[in-house]
């Protein structure tokens, strides 16, 4: 096993574990924005597309690179935009309305 592979594998496994740890704390209320945010994060494939596209020197290479850039661009820009649109909608109860507000315990402070 090469040194490079060992490093890459370590990074992969540790990132998986960090991912499990961080994401298991996200409340069900936010699962749709979470998936959308995760979607935007895998838009980092754009960086990969740029690096490989730079090596393209044949027509086939250019065509593949073009689609890779288009897909990745759509993924990253659209993903972040729609995540933000959703998260903007999640609001607290406005303080002045709703008389019985103090009786309601927010869902997120419950165990």
């Amino acid at each position: 096993m090469s040194h490079q592979l060992l490093t890459d594998l370590s990074i992969f496994i540790l990132s998986l574990l960090v991912g499990f740890e961080v994401i298991s704390k996200v409340p069900a209320t936010l699962h749709t924005p979470l998936m959308s945010a995760a979607n935007s994060i895998h838009g980092i494939v754009l960086a990969g597309a740029m690096l490989t596209a730079a090596q393209a020197h044949s027509n086939l290479g250019y065509v593949l690179a073009f689609f890779a850039m288009m897909f990745a661009g759509m993924n990253v820009a659209g993903g972040y935009k729609v995540t933000d649109r959703m998260l903007k909608m999640f609001k607290r109860r406005p303080a002045n309305t709703a008389k019985p507000a103090e009786q309601i315990t927010p869902a997120e402070v419950r165990p």
Binding site: Q4, D8, I11, F12, I13, S15, L16, L17, V18, G19, F20, V22, I23, S24, H31, L34, M35, A38, N39, I41, H42, I44, V45, A47, G48, L51, T52
Partner: peptide
């Protein structure tokens, strides 16, 4: 996997995070 192909830790980390999130959901 694309990260492994081109040796990019950024892709490996981001991919693993998304993989974990998708698996949990």
């Amino acid at each position: 996997m694309a990260g492994f192909v081109i040796d990019s830790s950024a892709l490996i980390i981001a991919g693993a995070l998304v993989g974990a999130s998708g698996t949990i959901l």
